[in-house]
Amino acid sequence: MAIADLDLIAIRRHLHAYPELSMAEFKTQAYLKEIILSWQSSWLTIREIPAVPTALLVRLTGSKPTRTIGYRADIDALPINEETDLAYASKNPGVMHACGHDIHMTVALGVLAYFATHQPVDNLIFLFQPAEEEQAGGKQLYELGTFVNEWRPDEFYALHDQPAMPAGQIATRQGTLFAGTTEIHLTIKGRGGHAAFPHQAQDVIVAASSFVMALQTIVSRNVNPVRGGVITIGKLQAGTIGNVIPNEAKLAGTIRAFEQADLEMMQQRVREIAQSTAAMYSVTFDLELNQGGYWPVNNDSKTTTNFMQFMQEDKEIDFVVSQPAMTGEDFGYLINQIPGTMFWLGVGDAEHGLHDSHLAPDESAIEPGIRAITKFLNWRMQQ
C-alpha cells in the first residue's frame, strides 16, 4: 500500500477515539500491526518484545546500507477526561490522547508506508513505543537489550507535536530541547492532636509548609541562572477538619532542569532539605525521588546539524529554530545512549496546551510532517 492510499485522517481519528494508558496499549499495538502487515513488504520485519508486550518495532532492510537510522513514535495516552466534543472524541472514559501521541503515530505510519513501498538505501528501524507518559518505556526497552546488533540504530529521530506552533511547521535546536524531570513523593508523619494544644503535637502541616518554602531557594541560589530549573509541588494533602492537627501529610511535585548535572544536584538539595526539616520539626520524612528515563533531551550536535541544515535549505518546509522548553520526554534517555535529534511539529491549537482536556490538533499538520521527515531521511541516506 502506498502512502497515497492511506486514509491518514481516518487512522488518526481511530487512534484518537481509542486511547490507552501506559503499558496497556494492547488494542493500539494490534491496530498498528494490522496496518503494517497489510502492506506485505518483502524488506519489512516486525518484532515484538515479550517483556514489554505493547511495544512494536519495524525494521526495513536497505538496498545498499551503510548505516541504520531509527525513528520513534510514542503510543500511550493520559488519564484525562476529554472535553472536546469532537465526533471522534475518546470512547474510553477518563483516557485521552491529550499529548498528541495519535498525531505522532499517524505521522510515523505515513513515513513507514512510503519506505514500505520504496525500499530505503539504509536500514530503517521504527519504534512504536509504549509508556512515554509514565514508566519510561524507552528506558525499559533499552535496558532489556532491544537495540543490539541489526536492531541498533546509529542515529535516532523523533517528533513531539506543539499546539503553539502553526500546523505543519518544524522546529528544533542544538543542545537541550526539553528538560529532564524527577518526580517528588513525600510522606510526612508526626503526632496529631487538638488544635488548641499544638505543643502536644508534631505538626506535619507546619513541617510540610516549611519544606515547600525551603525548596524555593534551590533554583534561585543553587542553579546557574543562565541554565534554569523548576521545582513545583503540585499536590499537598493533610487533615480532615480545621480543629485537628493531623498526623500525616502527603506531597507530590516535580524537579526539572536542562542539564543532568543540575538535576542531580537539585535532587540532592531536596534530600538535604527534607532531612533538616524533619529534624527541625521532630517529624518523619519518607522521601522518594524518581527520575527513571526522563533525562534531558540533549540533541546530538552532528545529527542535529544535519537535520537543521536540510530543513533550513528546503524551501518547501516551514522551519524555525526553537527555544528550549521545560517539557519532559523519555526520548532523552534514548538519545543519551544513541546519538539523535528530537524536534517539534506544529499542530496549530494555540488556545490549548499539551495535556489539556480540550486539545484539538489541526490534522492538516500530518501530511507536511510526513513529507518533511520522508524527504530528510532520503537526503540523509545519500550522505
Rank of each mutant, 00 (worst) to 15 (best):
Y142F: 14
R72K: 00
K235R: 03
R59Q: 14
P79G: 02
L236S: 03
F156E: 13
P19M: 06
D330W: 11
T277D: 08
L177P: 01
V283T: 03
Y157C: 07
F128K: 05
R191D: 06
A158C: 14
A171L: 05
A4H: 13
S301Y: 11
G138Y: 10
L37E: 15
P198W: 01
H355E: 10
V204R: 02
S301A: 10
H14W: 10
T341E: 00
E363H: 13
P225Q: 00
F147T: 03
P339D: 13
A17V: 04
F343Q: 01
L289T: 12
M381V: 11
V297N: 01
E133P: 07
P120L: 04
F376P: 07
F310C: 07
H185M: 09
S282R: 09
V244T: 05
P130H: 02
D74K: 00
F178L: 01
Q312P: 12
S301K: 13
A55C: 09
Y31A: 07
G180K: 11
T182N: 04
T232N: 06
G137K: 01
K64F: 07
H185L: 14
A87Y: 04
W295P: 01
W379P: 09
M165G: 06
K375V: 13
A261Y: 03
A360F: 15
F178W: 08
R173T: 03
L354N: 02
I184V: 00
P50W: 05
E248W: 06
I49R: 07
A279H: 08
P153L: 15
P163Y: 13
T182G: 12
L112N: 01
I49F: 14
T61V: 10
D74H: 02
A252W: 06
L186A: 04
A108N: 08
R371I: 13
T284S: 09
R152K: 15
Q382P: 01
G369T: 00
T277P: 03
A360Q: 14
Q29V: 06
V111E: 12
F126C: 10
P339I: 00
N306Q: 15
S63G: 04
P120C: 03
I370L: 04
I370M: 04
F128W: 05
Q129S: 06
D262V: 08
P163T: 12
V230L: 02
M266T: 05
A167N: 15
N247F: 11
F26M: 01
Y294I: 13
D203R: 06
I75T: 10
V223M: 04
I103A: 13
A360K: 15
A179M: 09
I241P: 08
Q309R: 15
T284K: 14
E83H: 15
M96N: 13
E351M: 15
L359V: 09
A73G: 02
L6Q: 12
